[in-house]
């Protein structure tokens, strides 16, 4: 029984680490610009798909292909901000949601044209010999996912708390006009936030692709789960979003293992609803009062 639960937890953390990275991307953009970017899942898909295309199709070594693809996805993120979000400034929250949904459909369509409908796999970074912890097992790639996610999360944390640019982005989210008045280049900060989000998404995609495979429509479900995780943790708090991701992964895995695998997603959402009923701003979000 103990070994079983250990396995459930290991599985939950691996899946949760992916959700956490996607959720972190959601939270960064939300904090910088009050936009919920529903194309976040598409960044993940693009990262994985273009890496595979470059390494398998063009014969680049995996690390170089990954670097090029991350750079490309960052460009996509910047263009999204510049050409889709910035022009619609001042539009209502729902309008921006629809814009990002449009963007996600567009990017999916692009991936469909470029790479077709096939499912693609990626070689594992360091072999597929499972590591044993008692009766539970773990793939080296799982460690890559967890390790990669930890490094990225710590990096983002450092960026927001200890660098001028990071603090400037936070300032923009608190009060855009005030930030502008103290000399912060608000437009630039927005670009940095979207670029950072795209970077996180694409890296997440590359890290998990060897385990999960990928296809042009793989971003939809990841985006949905990432959004749920961000809400569970509390949108306003990037580290809350990360915690939300890990928690959602664990809930799903434990629900599948201990209760019913058919209803595990439903159980995840029921818990999410219950959390919201009692903490309307998520687990780690700050309660906000409406300004009158």
């Amino acid at each position: 029984m103990f070994d079983q639960i250990l396995q459930f937890i290991l599985t939950g953390i691996t899946v949760g680490a992916t959700y956490a990275l996607v959720a972190l991307g959601f939270a960064i953009i939300y904090n910088a610009s009050d936009v919920v970017n529903f194309s976040q899942g598409e960044f993940v898909m693009l990262g994985a798909m273009s890496t595979i295309a470059l390494s398998a199709g063009n014969g680049l070594p995996l690390w170089l292909a990954a670097a090029c693809s991350v750079a490309m996805v960052i460009c996509v993120g910047l263009m999204l901000q510049r050409f889709a979000i910035a022009p619609a400034r001042g539009a209502s929250v729902v309008t921006t949601i629809i814009i990002t949904i449009g963007a996600s459909i567009f990017l999916r369509g692009l991936a469909l044209l470029l790479w077709g409908k096939d499912i693609f796999g990626m070689p594992h970074f360091s072999g597929e010999v499972p590591l044993r912890i008692g009766e539970a097992t773990l793939l080296p790639q799982n460690l890559w996912v967890m390790g990669g996610a930890s490094v990225l999360v710590l990096g983002v944390h450092y960026f927001f708390n200890h660098t001028t640019h990071g603090k400037a982005i936070l300032a923009c989210s608190c009060n855009r006009t005030a930030a502008h008045l103290v000399g912060i280049n608000v437009g630039m900060m927005m670009l940095i936030a979207y670029g950072l989000s795209a970077l996180l998404g694409s890296l997440a995609g590359i890290l998990v692709a060897p385990i999960t495979f990928t296809s042009y429509d793989a971003g939809v479900m990841l985006g949905l789960k990432g959004f749920s995780a961000a809400i569970l943790g509390g949108m306003g708090n990037p580290m809350g979003a990360v915690a939300g991701g890990l928690l959602l992964g664990l809930i799903e895995s434990l629900a599948a293992g201990l209760i019913s695998s058919g209803y595990k997603d439903a159980i995840g959402f029921v818990i999410l609803l219950l959390v919201l009923f009692f903490r309307p701003s998520g687990l780690f979000g700050k309660a906000s009062a409406e300004r009158v």
Partner: peptide, 21 residues
């Protein structure tokens, strides 16, 4: 055909950008 998804996304996006209301 294959361009359908792409075009649909582009139309949706541009309508909302240019006519946000």
């Amino acid at each position: 055909e294959d361009f359908e998804v792409l075009i649909f996304g582009a139309i949706l996006m541009s309508m909302m950008i240019f006519l946000p209301q």
